[in-house]
């Protein structure tokens, strides 16, 4: 059984993020990393191989040259090889275009199971997995808090506000996993070195047969008109409790008409 894991290279959560002049997220000057939420997808895939359920793992990313770092990190955790879709025409792509390109790449790679993160930590849309399932015409089992594969079928547990669901579908299928599936292991130094030697193929849009006119900022179906940074919150009064902390807090709440 062949797994493809979708991983994205994103700015460090602790870096200070801003919009570039073209109103896309500034990536060039900001430290990046493998999206923390995609690490959960990597971990699930590696576990399935360890259990003997899956035979191979290919990572797939679409992004600028630096996105290779995300593939290398994933390959250090486990897996066999990776595909990097790299093309200048992709800059500024929206979710529709991203899913179009990733869908074409998935078709070319071939898969039994696709595992995505629940959301990218930069765009935070949480739509690419659903869009991919739609484009590929495979069952969608998203936001899985737990995942099992056996006998050519995948089962997931999905919790939302109103109910908790168990879902099942025959392979091939697409899942996305939440941060409840268990943290990724941290690769050893040796594993990091080994990850650097695993094969990574670089594909252009031409390799995928995707028209450049269908992707990038020019083809985006949404446009950011303006953006502004929220003024940072100011720290207020901090008191050290010396037996009177609760009373001072209650005074504050009364003054604010909150009690």
């Amino acid at each position: 059984m062949k797994i493809v894991v979708l991983v994205k290279h994103v700015p460090e959560p602790t870096a200070s993020w801003r919009y570039a002049d073209d109103l896309t997220l500034e990536r060039a000057t900001v430290e990046g990393r493998l999206s923390e939420l995609d690490e959960y997808a990597v971990e699930q895939a590696v576990t399935l191989v360890e259990k003997g359920v899956a035979s191979s793992i290919t990572y797939l990313t679409m992004g600028p040259a630096k996105a290779l770092d995300a593939l290398r990190m994933a390959l250090a955790i486990g897996g066999d090889d990776a595909v990097h879709v790299l093309d200048d025409a992709l800059h500024g792509s929206d979710a529709l275009a991203t899913s179009r390109v990733l869908g074409a790449a998935l078709t070319r790679i071939g898969f039994d199971l696709v595992i995505c993160g629940m959301a990218s930590t930069d765009a935070e849309m949480g739509v690419v997995p659903a869009m991919l399932a739609e484009r590929l015409g495979v069952p969608q089992l998203t936001l899985a808090g737990a995942l099992e594969v056996a006998d050519g079928a995948v089962t997931v547990h999905r919790d939302d506000d109103v109910e908790s669901l168990d879902l099942a579908a025959a392979l091939p299928a697409l899942v996305s996993v939440t941060d409840q599936t268990g943290q990724a292991r941290y690769p050893s130094f040796r594993a990091i070195v080994a990850g650097k030697k695993k094969p990574v193929a670089t594909w252009s849009l031409a390799d995928l047969g995707v028209e450049p006119a269908l992707v990038g900022a020019g083809a985006a179906a949404t446009a950011v008109r303006s953006a502004s940074i929220h003024p940072p919150r100011q720290a207020g009064t901090v008191v050290v409790d010396q037996g009177d902390g609760a009373a001072l807090l209650a005074d504050f709440l009364v003054a604010q008409k909150l009690i």
């Binding site: 089992l141 089962t155 669901l165 168990d166 879902l167």
Partner: peptide, 13 residues
């Protein structure tokens, strides 16, 4: 017809 996802258990909160 999107290939089917079966709901095998459903529990309201």
């Amino acid at each position: 017809g999107v290939p089917g996802v079966r709901v095998t258990r459903r529990e309201a909160k």
